[in-house]
């Protein structure tokens, strides 16, 4: 599913080089739930950006579903992001003045889903995060936890294989954070691949596998034996 070979990412700023990734290799299989952890500056966000086709590596090879990033132009990357990937951000990134429905609809506007199928998809996604009664509310008027659930619905609406989540609980209180993690856990139980970036051990432990980064290198890559949460959001 996901295959990283010796990925490097070098940023140049005023002549000074920063090696955000310094040769990172690993594989993630279909259906895995992986947490990527590390202190700030360890390269975890950069890694997520490369994995999710937001950015290209300076060196090394990245393959997603047997497509090498090198062989794809920007438009092809956009199509894969739209069809096979879902994103959840720390700062939600919703259009505050648009309704929940319109926010969740957005990825479908760029997809091949026909116009008459869209409403069904959107409602299903909103239902999956338990926000049916907020469908026509402006996103800006929701609480933080609700906003993140809208963001998850948006990530789900195209029925992607992989969901990338970048500090999804970072802006939330602990209760809302747990809810969000329960939802992600549920999605994983339904067979989706989840890649989660976090700096909180508590959150990271919802996954089955933990990759720890330090200074752009993998420090450890181990399974989590006593993982947290049972995907109990809907139980």
């Amino acid at each position: 599913m996901i295959q990283a070979d010796n990925l490097t990412k070098v940023y140049t700023n005023d002549g000074a080089e920063t090696r955000a990734l310094d040769g990172v290799s690993f594989k993630i299989k279909q259906g895995e739930f992986v947490s990527i952890m590390g202190p700030s500056g360890s390269g975890k966000s950069t890694l997520l950006h490369v994995l999710s086709f937001f950015d290209r590596p300076t060196d090394g090879e990245y393959r997603f579903s047997n497509h090498s990033e090198k062989e794809l132009d920007d438009t092809a990357l956009a199509k894969i992001r739209n069809k096979d990937m879902g994103f959840v951000f720390q700062s939600f990134n919703l259009l505050a003045r648009s309704t929940v429905f319109d926010n969740v609809l957005m990825p479908l506007l760029y997809s091949e889903v026909s116009a008459d199928q869209r409403e069904k998809y959107v409602k299903k996604a909103i239902n999956a995060v338990g926000l049916n009664e907020k469908t026509n509310v402006e996103a800006g008027k929701l609480s933080g936890g609700q906003k993140q659930r809208v963001a998850i619905a948006r990530a789900l609406v195209n029925n992607p294989n992989v969901i990338f989540a970048d500090e999804p609980t970072g802006n939330l209180d602990s209760k809302s954070g747990e809810q969000i993690m329960d939802i992600l856990r549920d999605l994983h139980e339904q067979g989706r691949t989840i890649v989660l970036v976090t700096h909180e051990t508590y959150t990271a432990e919802y996954a089955d596998r933990l990759i720890k980064l330090k200074d752009g290198l993998i420090e450890s890559d181990e399974p989590i034996i006593h993982r947290r949460g049972n995907g109990e959001f809907f139980k």
Binding site: D74, A78, N82, L95, Y110
Partner: peptide, 12 residues
């Protein structure tokens, strides 16, 4: 950025 993230192409 968000639109591009969820699949909008430059042309879109």
């Amino acid at each position: 950025g968000l639109r591009k993230a969820v699949g909008a192409t430059n042309r879109d």
